[in-house]
């Protein structure tokens, strides 16, 4: 990356794999699991978090020297809440159906631990540009997991991707369904999200032995 120095590009690339917010830092799990039954909802959620975390990190970083440390949590919550209201209103205006599917989970971006976690751990101690990169990187790492989980749940659960019937039509028995393939409706139920994330963690940690926990 010519545009960014090595240190800066590390800020973006690290959270994508070895320091992933969901699988390693254990942040922001709630929303990751609840809305991933469809790929589309996962993508929208990922973009919303990208927006909130990118801008929020910059705002907090700009204010980091004037926030009294005792009330910083309330200040942070108000900044996030304001950004989330913007996201919520935009979704309601341009994608009403989708905002119904996401229901309360747009609001829950406020208490998404990823956001408070990055504010506390990074934005309070670094300049705006680096905080912005950190926010983008972490939100991208979060979005990546969301999209992987959403991809598998929608593909295996309803045989579609973004609503397109990629595996053929289950009613007309075309495509894969012609040879007796069946959708696994279980994938659409919420517990499977947990198990899919568990498997992602398993794969990641068996590839990188340094990440294995003692217990």
């Amino acid at each position: 990356m010519g545009l960014l120095s090595k240190k800066d590009s590390k800020l973006i690339l690290d959270p994508l794999a070895d320091n992933n917010p969901i699988t390693i830092q254990v942040l922001g799990i709630c929303s990751a699991l609840a809305i991933t039954a469809e790929l589309k909802a996962s993508i929208v959620m990922a973009v919303s978090v990208l927006f909130v975390l990118g801008i929020g990190n910059v705002v907090i970083s700009l204010m980091r020297n004037i926030i009294p440390s005792k009330i910083r949590i309330i200040v942070q919550l108000i900044v996030v809440a304001a950004l989330v209201i913007i996201v919520d209103l935009v979704l309601k205006a341009f994608a009403y159906e989708l905002s119904k599917t996401l229901s309360v989970f747009v609001g829950l971006i406020i208490t998404n631990c990823i956001i408070m976690g990055r504010f506390e751990a990074f934005a309070l101690g670094n300049g705006p540009w680096r905080s912005f990169l950190d926010g983008i990187g972490n939100a991208a790492g979060y979005g990546l997991i969301l999209i992987i989980v959403g991809f598998f749940r929608e593909l295996l659960g309803s045989g579609t991707l973004l609503g397109f019937k990629v595996l053929g039509d289950p009613i007309e028995k075309s495509g894969l369904y012609a040879i007796g393939y069946e959708n696994n409706g279980f994938m659409l139920l919420s517990p499977m999200a947990l198990i899919v994330v568990g498997i992602i963690i398993w794969v990641q940690r068996s590839r990188n032995k340094a990440l294995i926990e003692d217990h």
Binding site: L194, I201, W202, D214
Partner: peptide, 10 residues
């Protein structure tokens, strides 16, 4: 080993 901790909890 790779499932220890977080993975198995999920």
């Amino acid at each position: 080993p790779a499932l220890r901790g977080l993975g198995i909890t999920f």
